[in-house]
Write a protein that binds this DNA or RNA. Structure first.
Lengths: 249, 249
DNA sequence: CGGGCGCATTGACCTAGATCAAGAAGCTGT
DNA sequence: ACAGCTTCTTGATCTAGGTCAATGCGCCCG
């Protein structure tokens, strides 16, 4: 009743519920799903420890996360497993509010979710989620559609990693991100990067130095402007997209 | 009634039906799905022309296919669009009998399915498939599970493309393929490669020459033996897996 | 069985990007 | 405002793998 904001937990659950109903699920199913979902709040930099025994579905309510794949060195022994020991880890995807991430348990590999900034999310045990959702085909179908979209993005990234130059990767990264979280400002487009240069590098399969150099080049050519660590402005999205795409030879 | 084999079409439909029922779908749903599926037979090297206006699901009954992603040069004009003009195309995945491939229509990109050898398959229009399957949640769930598996494989490939050396990629490719289509022979494992060196290269984001060189090196070290173009024997799968995986430094 | 074509192998060289090594901004907290 | 971090930028080398080019071999077909 107070004028103060809802608790993050209630707000997150409400977001999830209404996103389901928008996908034409019945509100009854939504209620039951909310009942089996567990709310969680992550602060910047912390990771969601993944039980190695089961798959999860994670709904992002607010903030931003990265999905990290790490070749599972068998329990890197005692070494304080804080994030910085990330040698040779690969970022598989970034995810933003409203999206559902599927974190599959995968023998031999270690897949984790880490928060780029303070993040609220709702976690489901995949089997349980599907058991409940099975009563409502439209919900399962919605989840299927989302996972096919994720597959599509994943394939697009593969093409990027396969045959593109550093310059193209960085350009493509910026254009794609602009489409997902950018705000148009007349001709130009502004993005506030939630991730570090290192994150960008690891997601593109490059080194942080190379990413930095490509930013410098694009900046020199007037294709991007930066302000501070995280402010990026793309004065000509089309020109940049052209850089990203089919520059033969 | 004759002793002769079934027609490929009937055999393919029967495979599809029984794979569905194994996944606990009702046989009634299976019948209805078969009714909307269209059988098709591809000969070695030919491509499934993808209508650009809709997504498809393709069930592989026999043979082998590659899923190709090509940055869509706007209608490469008249140039006889036979397969060989594949400049800078990337192979997104290989698929084998029993698997369901989802081919999503993707603006700006051209995704196609090509047969590595003579192949029988059943094609569905995704929306129609799901409309029918919606009556039977366990079928939709099965499709979802398969697509999550595809996502998982896709992520694994991303890690490969991201941070691995040519040697590791080739080793990983062979080990992964061995697990999918290899036949054990005591300690060793035999594979008959359905794809060319060029295909391997394009799927790993390497050149055909580099792949060849890596084969030569691994051969020299006794980790693989080859016979003819397509015969491969892996005398020590574990040693090879170790090459593929976490060789730090 | 032998000719010919396409795939595979091998070699010589050369760039894009990794690696190593300083510095220069940015964002904290006091 | 300043100290002390972390993250970013820039520069100088080094090398894995790409590119170009020649040769060899498996496989199909007459």
């Amino acid at each position: 009743m107070a004028t103060a904001a809802l608790t993050p937990e209630l707000a997150s659950m409400e977001m999830f519920r209404s996103s389901l109903i928008r996908d034409s699920g019945s509100s009854e199913t939504a209620e039951r799903l909310c009942a089996v979902g567990r709310f969680s709040s992550l602060s910047r930099g912390s990771m969601l420890w993944q039980n190695p025994d089961s798959d999860r579905l994670v709904y992002i309510a607010s903030g931003a996360v990265k999905l990290i794949g790490q070749r599972a060195g068998p329990e890197d022994s005692d070494a304080h497993a804080n994030e910085r020991s990330a040698r040779g880890s690969q970022i598989l995807a970034f995810h933003f509010p409203g999206e559902i991430v599927s974190v599959l348990h995968q023998a031999e590999r270690d897949v984790r979710l880490a928060a780029l900034c303070d993040t609220d999310l709702v976690i489901f045990w995949t089997d349980q989620f599907l058991d409940v959702a099975e009563g409502d085909p439209s919900v399962i179908r919605a989840v299927l559609t989302r996972s096919l979209e994720a597959l599509q993005r994943s394939r697009a990234r593969m093409m990027q990693l396969g045959h593109k130059s550093a310059r193209q990767r960085v350009a493509d990264f910026l254009v794609t991100l602009a489409q997902r979280i950018g705000t148009m400002d007349g001709e130009a487009c502004d993005i506030t990067l939630p991730m570090s240069r290192r994150d960008i590098a690891e997601s593109l399969g490059l080194t942080l130095e190379t990413v930095s150099r490509q930013f410098a080049d694009l900046r020199a050519e007037g294709l991007v402007a930066t302000s501070g660590r995280s402010g990026v402005r793309l004065p000509d999205l089309y020109a940049l997209a052209r850089e990203a795409g089919q520059r033969f030879s």
